[in-house]
Write a protein that binds this DNA or RNA. Structure first.
Length: 542
DNA sequence: TCGCCTAACACCTTTGAATAGC
DNA sequence: AGCTATTCAAAGGTGTTAGGCG
């Protein structure tokens, strides 16, 4: 119905989908610590449909799934209040970025290096999250000539089964049990012996970095499949509407990218001395604008989407929205219920949403950073602040709305059936993003929306809408241009905008910088011959 | 008292340098 | 000399636990 197959139908599969679903069926919890904690399960992805010769950047960000704070009571998670104020949004950039489509498609892409922290003052580039909040990881595939000049097609993928609640200590014993049985690092806590055969099998089958089992969820941009059907979870329905907001986004480079990284771009980066940040990779911080909270009011109730074919005319939007191939969990013969001693596998199908955005406006493709911070994170800080809501670079649309049983729930600002419209021009993007349904067709992307969508997944709450990055930028530049935007006194941000992101280079900055950033350091050295050279901060100015 | 967070701890895997063998 | 395989110690990833804090 809405599909207009594109030449580049980027497809992303979640290889360890079945493991995620096992956790999801119980209510996934992710430990967050001050020093940063890896995610387990991690995201193991398989990309296809990319142009082998083009370069792409892969990003991982984690956005609030709703606007609530949770508490584990009576054996389940219940919303106990509103979410805390938004934290600086950070995006983890896969260390291989930028790499060619051939590179990404030739191997399993893992984001296991990404770490989560509850330290709001984190300087290591970890993704900062609030404890006891529900989040949804998203993966973005962005065409990029190099690390500094992004443009071209952009695709956002959301796998509902990867949603989780952050904790500082596990609340649900079942989750603890699953983690211990699945994570090799927790082998010492298994009851069946340290070196039992079963343990080894489990470890081998579940370990993120090396295991590549045929258990995946895939998403194809032009398909429509039955909605996923996961076992019910205790996640309560969100009590408050999600308030989109983009405060800050950082990009993390946990490890230096491969040597085959693209050559330095001509992007404009000005380096200034910065502050310290413990040994880590390069980090950038860029300013960005806010995701207006009013957006939610411009969208149709999610009930529209989960009830089936939405009436929203999405075919005219510029963004491509595709629905994942999802098979009902109970229909998968290989799927094993919680407690299974061996990871199950699923066919290459799963639930995920993909958004394809048109190229960034020319003015957005070359970023100008007054100061650059070669550390592991790149932050986009918005000037206006919201109390909560999806963060993410505006360029990344929101995950689709996940319908819920509660009729009293707020409707997602995004019509479940519609795609985020992102026109090719700056101005257009604003309009389309704000009013996706009314936006006249001017784009080359189309939407493929699955009627039932993720609605069948009770534990997944409607995700708040996001605005395109262009919109954010626009807002940053023209704060009050659009009266329909946020409006009314958005809650003050905890972080009023980061002037710089602190980070520290190794003694040999060149060795710690991602290839694409090395020239920046050299540039910095040339510009500041007397500077220490060890500390560089960055700020993007659009 | 309760809920939440932190740090120390033991146990484990991973990683990479050092070494040995071919 | 160069390459590969093996060994080993350090680093770091786990959940547990006790204790601190508001």
């Amino acid at each position: 119905r809405f599909t207009t197959p594109q030449k580049d139908e980027v497809k992303l599969e979640l290889e360890n989908s079945s493991l995620w679903k096992q956790f999801s069926s119980v209510g996934t919890e992710m430990i967050i610590t001050k020093k940063g904690r890896r995610m387990f399960p991690g995201l193991r992805l398989k990309l296809s449909g990319l142009n082998p010769s083009l370069r792409y950047i892969l990003l991982l960000d984690i956005v609030p799934a709703d606007n609530s704070r949770y508490r584990f009571q009576g054996g389940g998670w219940q919303a106990v209040g509103g979410a805390e104020a938004r934290l600086p949004d950070r995006v983890f950039i896969h260390p291989d970025s930028p790499a060619t489509g051939a590179h990404w498609q030739s191997r399993t892409v893992s984001f296991h290096y990404a770490k989560l922290t509850n330290n709001t003052l984190d300087t290591r580039g970890h993704i900062i999250l609030h404890s006891l909040h529900r989040y949804q990881p998203r993966v973005h595939v962005i065409e990029a000539r190099d690390m500094l000049r992004w443009g071209g097609g952009q695709h956002t993928f959301v796998f509902p089964e990867t949603q989780f609640i952050t904790v500082t200590a596990y609340q649900n014993n079942k989750i603890t049990e699953l983690k211990i049985n699945s994570n090799p690092f927790a082998k010492g806590f298994r009851e069946d012996g340290m070196n039992s055969k079963s343990s080894d099998v489990m470890a081998e089958a579940t370990y993120e970095p090396n295991f590549s089992a045929p258990q995946s969820s895939s998403f194809s941009s032009s398909t429509s499949h039955p909605p996923p059907s996961f076992p019910p979870v205790d996640y309560p329905s969100p009590m408050l509407p999600a308030t989109p907001s983009l405060q800050q986004t950082s990009f993390s480079f946990p490890t230096p990218p491969p040597s085959d990284s693209s050559s330095p771009s001509s992007g404009t980066f000005l380096l200034d001395p910065g502050t310290v940040s413990p040994h880590t990779p390069a980090a950038f911080r860029a300013t960005s604008s806010t995701c207006p909270s009013s957006l939610q009011d411009q969208t149709s109730p999610h009930s529209q989407g989960h009830q089936g074919e939405p009436d929203v005319p999405v075919a005219q939007t510029s963004a491509a929205f595709t629905y994942p191939n999802v098979l009902p969990m109970n229909s998968d013969p290989e799927y094993q219920p919680l407690g299974a001693s061996v990871p199950c596998s699923l066919p290459a199908n799963g639930s995920c949403h993909s958004y394809a955005l048109p190229s960034l406006p020319q003015q957005m493709q070359t970023l100008s950073f007054p100061s650059v911070n070669p550390s592991s994170a790149l932050n986009f800080s918005n000037r206006s602040h919201q109390a909560a809501g999806p963060s993410l670079p505006a360029a990344f649309p929101p995950p689709t709305s996940f319908p819920h049983s509660s009729s009293s729930l707020p409707h997602p600002s995004f019509p479940p059936s519609s795609c985020l419209a992102v026109p090719s021009s700056f101005q257009q993007s604003l309009t389309s993003a704000a009013l996706p349904q009314a936006h006249p067709s001017s784009t080359s992307y189309t939407c493929s929306y699955p009627p039932a969508g993720v609605s069948a997944i009770p534990q997944f709450a409607p995700a708040p809408p996001y605005r395109s990055e262009m919109v954010l930028h626009r807002q940053a530049l023209l704060p009050q241009l659009d009266p329909s935007l946020p409006s009314s006194n958005p809650p003050p941000a905890i972080y009023p905008g980061f002037p710089s992101y602190p980070l520290r280079l190794h003694q040999d900055p060149h060795s710690s910088l991602s290839a694409p950033f090395r020239h920046l350091y050299r540039q910095h050295q040339q510009s500041h011959p007397h500077s220490q050279g060890s500390y560089i901060s960055a700020r993007a100015v659009f």
